[in-house]
Amino acid sequence: MRFSSSAIVSALLATGALAAPTPLTKRAGVLTAKSYADFQVSDGVAGNALAEVQAKFPIDTSNLANVDPADAKIISDARQTAESAETDAFNPAIAAASGDAATALQNGKIKNKVLKLQLEVLDLGISAAQSGKDNSAKIAQEQKKLDNNIATDKKNAGQASKSVQFSG
């Protein structure tokens, strides 16, 4: 039996096309843009801020290059909003409060810092993974701050934690 060279080449190309790796498809978005009041984690009690943040922002950190661009934008925007809440709402509220109210607000601020810094580390990691830009020094700097605030939150476990009114 004789095969023509074009038939053999066609068969090889077809087989090669089936075996060729397929490009990665972006993961579908898992986040929805929300107001600060809906994604803040400061209310309740101190001690579990990181888990609360991860529940509100369930991003697969094992493959940051595959994070949906809409999710990356939500993370970046939420980080900026959390930072504004800290400077524009928590700081003045703590300065005006005293006693247990000040302590609860301070615990809320620490939980807000965990939120802000976790989102910053995620944002920097996504940016690095998707652009190839080396953000490792900045990530390490922000991770150190995050770790310190997580430790403070855990040290205050069980204490009351209070959010602030902030529109963002």
Rank of each mutant, 00 (worst) to 15 (best):
A151F: 00
F3H: 04
T61L: 12
S5E: 13
I110F: 02
G47I: 06
F3M: 06
F3W: 09
Q54T: 07
E120K: 08
A140N: 06
A93Q: 05
K155H: 05
L105V: 13
L117Y: 06
T103F: 10
Q165M: 14
T32R: 08
I59H: 03
Q54F: 08
P92A: 10
R79C: 03
T87M: 10
A11S: 15
T61F: 05
R79P: 01
S35N: 14
F3S: 04
E83M: 11
N66E: 15
P23G: 08
A46T: 01
N48H: 06
A157H: 05
S4Q: 06
A89Q: 00
L115C: 03
D68G: 09
D153M: 05
S161T: 10
S62M: 11
K133I: 13
K109W: 08
K34P: 07
N149Y: 11
K162W: 11
S131N: 10
A82D: 01
N63K: 15
D100C: 15
K109I: 08
Q130I: 01
A151H: 04
K116W: 11
D88L: 10
A37M: 11
A51C: 05
S163T: 15
P92S: 12
F57K: 01
F57N: 02
E52I: 15
D71I: 03
D77R: 05
A137F: 08
N63V: 14
A137Y: 08
T32P: 03
L124N: 01
F90M: 07
A19P: 09
L31S: 03
N107V: 04
S136A: 10
E120N: 13
A37T: 10
F57D: 00
A137S: 14
L13C: 09
A93F: 09
S131L: 02
D153G: 03
V45M: 11
A140C: 07
D77N: 07
L64G: 05
G47Q: 01
S127L: 04
T15W: 05
A93W: 05
L122R: 00
S127A: 11
Q141H: 12
N48F: 00
Q40G: 06
S136N: 02
F166N: 03
T61W: 04
P92T: 11
V9G: 04
Q159K: 14
N107C: 07
S42W: 03
G16V: 09
E86A: 12
T81G: 02
I126V: 14
F57L: 00
S136G: 05
L122K: 03
T152I: 10
K73P: 00
S5C: 09
